[in-house]
Design a protein around this nucleic acid. Structure first.
Length: 654
RNA sequence: GCCGACGUAGCUCAGCUGGUAGAGCAGCGGUUUCGUAAACCGCAGGUCACGGGUUCGAAUCCCGUCGUCGGCUCCA
């Protein structure tokens, strides 16, 4: 057995990876802050460069140990890829036996042995032919030669660029095609656990066969592992699905349908407050509100270009009998109606409804439109991914000269919102086009692409926003910016979007009369800084862990009386009426519970402010203020206490 | 949509290898008059997701459907 230890620590760590190690340190703070796993792009880069933090290296090695264990139990297993991921590692395996959680114990036992044996990881560089030879003998990701070739490994070798070195790693009998790096010895894997098994398409392509993805996590020490699981438990407590039920914010019902959330009064309040915020902000920014129906004829979506592109994510059309009869009489295709999956075509029609001059631009149409998208069943996820959604939508029509200012203003709006909500962990994804796909995936307007992407990039740079550029992910009609965030359990999703569109306006013949008396097509921005009510509220629930700021709180003040003396109750009710007179969402707890019981219930419902009122307070024309999470703040004169509440709500602080 | 797991009272969960369902909280009815995180007593509440099958007998075993969850894919 080789000496290990020091050599392992000597491995130089590139400077640019500092960020990642920082991230893992901050994982420990994940409970109070906000979960932020590695982003996909970062991960891809990592894999490409095969540079890893110490922890990732350890986890990567753990994945080899996992594969070794699986092979000991099922020697015929075929392995694909086994990288470290945000919270652990996985290995994709093709195996007739369906691995279930019942197998984990067995697998872990084998892994433990491998780790106890403290086998060194040896790196070997081989020629392509040697690698292929081994693969054909089934010797890659295997303990010995086998009758079946290592098919996935052979495929991976085929895809390694000719100029790149091919390396193998050996630990005990296990040999794997692997770029590395690894820890020195299996014994360095201090603590690990097999956590779950799921399926994944080979290379993430729906057309490829499905493999079993066995997930695990590993740390240097047992304590870190325990802390990690404790952290997961904490994260679960702020899961919006759990809090949504506990705080009576929203529900799903089988008879209503999957992905169709209903907001209870407490949840509806939050939606209303967000809407109020959006309306005020947009009014000040020169937007005008419009209102459009939830359905439209097929012809609208044919003209907009959405139908072929979006048909899969739209609810199937409804056929109207009367319209169908009409068709026969008048030969008009009128029978098919769709629930709208987006608002833009309706808004475009409003633009076209009135002759427009360059003097009218920019024109900003805003609507909290209700859309319906038939998301695949497996994609539904609490409030974050639903089938009925209300979007904080608006479409801005402008001349090319106005683009930069408008786009900038939209970004400003996001940033202001994020500041208001204290959202700090997010990532701007700037999606651009691939010039080689002009005319197929992207509209064939090379100049406009160049212009708008350049302008967009400049806006991002000049505002100092942290962003990543993602080529080939633009919308077909233009570049876009998505704001990416993460749910507490680590799912990533977009909470806001800002898209440039120079295609639809043309398709729908939108024009304005320019200074030179020529009809021109406007550029359009689609933007939704607050995303959809559903997703944004889901996000906020987790962001605040249900402890909403006063202005967003479903119940802002609850009045709790000590005893139910009629005079005291009258005093409490007069305060209630005064609060409600100021539009404060206040309630009185008239239950027969003792004061401690009332407080307990208010705290559990995370009511923002409690006015505790006893005879002492009544006699002093005062209330005792208690704030959720802060406790008793003592007695205050009634007018002051009410004034503070009203003021704080008006300023949307606290 | 795909793979896997799960589905017991409004909520959280118990119910061993099949013998016919139980607790806490919430709810309701009383009693209690309590100064900052649960006063006491009682009552009621379940075609064990739904449908079929195996069995003398199914919450428990098998099949199907629906739904949820973990992933994959996709997205606001």
């Amino acid at each position: 057995m080789k000496e290990v230890g020091t050599a392992c620590r000597d491995v130089p760590r590139p400077k640019q990876l500092h960020f990642y190690s920082k991230f893992f340190v901050s994982l420990a703070l994940f409970v109070v802050s906000f979960h932020r796993p590695l982003m996909k792009e970062e991960r891809k880069n990592l894999e490409a460069r095969t540079q890893m933090t110490d922890l990732e290296r350890l986890r990567h090695s753990a994945s080899h140990v996992l594969a070794t264990a699986i092979l000991k139990i099922w020697p015929e297993a075929q392995f694909a890829a086994g990288p470290p991921v945000e919270n652990g590692f996985y290995y994709d395996v093709d195996l007739p036996h369906r691995i279930s959680p019942d197998d984990f114990e067995k697998i872990e036992a084998e892994m433990k042995e491998e780790i106890k044996a403290n086998r060194p990881f040896e790196r070997m560089e081989v020629s392509r032919d040697e690698a292929l030879e081994l693969g054909k003998k089934g010797r890659l990701a295997a303990l010995s030669e086998r009758s079946e070739p290592s098919k996935f490994k052979l495929d991976i070798i085929e895809n390694i660029p000719p100029d790149e070195k091919i390396s193998l790693y050996r630990s005990g009998d296990f040999i794997d095609l692997c770029a590395g790096p690894h820890v020195k010895c299996t014994g360095e894997i201090g603590a690990f656990k097999v956590t779950s098994v799921a399926s994944a398409y080979y290379k993430g392509d729906e057309k490829n066969p499905q493999l079993q993805r066995v997930y695990g996590t590993a740390f240097k020490t047992k304590k870190e592992l325990d802390d990690y699981f404790a952290m997961l438990e904490e994260a679960k407590k702020r899961d919006h699905r759990k809090l949504g039920r506990e705080l009576e914010l929203f529900v799903f019902d089988d008879d209503v349908g999957p992905g169709l959330p209903m907001f209870l009064p407490r949840g509806a309040v939050i939606a209303e407050e967000l809407e109020k915020l959006a309306k005020e902000t947009e009014f000040a920014a020169g937007y005008q509100r419009v209102r459009t129906p939830h359905i439209a004829r097929e012809s609208l979506y044919k003209k907009s270009g959405h139908l072929p592109y979006y048909a899969e994510s739209m609810f199937p059309p409804m056929e109207l009998e009367e319209a169908r009869l009409g068709e026969r009489d008048h030969g008009t295709p009128a029978s098919l109606y769709y629930l709208k999956a987006m608002n833009c075509p309706h808004h475009h029609k409003l633009f076209a409804a009135v002759p427009r001059s360059y003097r009218d631009l920019p024109l900003r149409f805003a609507e909290y439109g209700t859309c319906y998208r038939y998301e695949k069943s497996g994609e539904l996820f609490g409030l974050m991914r639903v089938r009925s959604l209300q979007m904080n939508d608006a479409h801005i029509y402008m001349t090319p000269e106005q683009f930069e200012a408008e786009f900038n203003a939209v970004n400003e709006m996001y940033l202001n919102y994020f500041k208001l909500f204290g959202i700090e962990k997010y990532l701007m994804r700037f999606s651009t086009h691939d010039p080689s796909k002009l005319g197929e995936k992207f509209v064939d307007e090379p100049e406009l692409w160049k212009q708008t992407e350049e302008m967009t990039r400049n806006v991002l740079k000049s505002s100092g926003i942290n962003y990543v550029e993602v080529p080939n992910e633009a919308a077909f009609y233009g570049p876009k910016i998505d704001v990416q965030a993460w749910s507490v359990i680590g799912r990533e999703f977009s909470i806001a979007t800002n898209q440039v569109d120079f295609a639809q306006p043309r398709r729908l013949n939108l024009v304005y009369k320019d200074r030179d008396n020529i009809d021109k097509t406007p550029i359009c921005i689609h933007r939704a800084p607050l995303g959809t009510h559903e997703r944004f509220i889901g996000f906020l629930i987790e962001h605040y862990a249900g402890n909403f700021p006063l202005w967003l709180s479903p119940e802002q003040v609850r009045i709790l009386t000590i005893g139910d003396d009629p005079k005291l109750m009258d005093y409490a009710r007069s305060i209630l009426h005064e609060l409600r007179g100021h539009q404060v969402r206040a309630e009185i707890d008239e239950s027969p519970d003792k004061i401690n019981g009332k407080i307990q219930r208010a705290e559990q419902m995370k009511v923002h402010t409690m006015f505790v009122i006893g005879k002492r307070d009544m006699d002093a024309d005062a209330v005792s203020v208690r704030i959720h999470g802060k406790g008793n703040l003592g007695a205050k004169p009634r007018n002051e206490a009410i004034g503070d509440i009203v003021q704080s709500i008006r300023e949307r602080r606290g």
